[in-house]
Amino acid sequence: MVKKLVEEHGAENLMMIIGTPDIEGAELVAETVTEGDPSYAGPLAGVSLGLPVYHILEPAIRAEIPEDLYKEHLAMMAMVIDPQELETALAKYRKKKSLKKS
């Protein structure tokens, strides 16, 4: 499904935004989408898509979300998962992706 979307729209025009409740899960999705990790069990298994992956709680994304929506949808989960740690973890994969491209 996701693979089809990438083929249709082109990876350079797309971004994946995820909402996992922990950093390990976020890394797993990022690894799968960036490198096509074959150990993953979801609809993304074994597909290297070259998509940038961000978590909705990362500071760069969160900064663009209106305050009322942030409060309604995200504030509580931001107490469960550290946004700064998320950014550090996912930046690794985005870097790998850009290295791959060049």
Binding site: G25, M76, V80
Partner: peptide, 18 residues
């Protein structure tokens, strides 16, 4: 956890505590 599916009860408890 070995499959990256998280610690489900712990996440749930963290959310209730939050």
């Amino acid at each position: 956890l070995p499959m990256g599916s998280g610690n489900v009860p712990l996440t749930n408890y963290k959310t209730i505590a939050a």
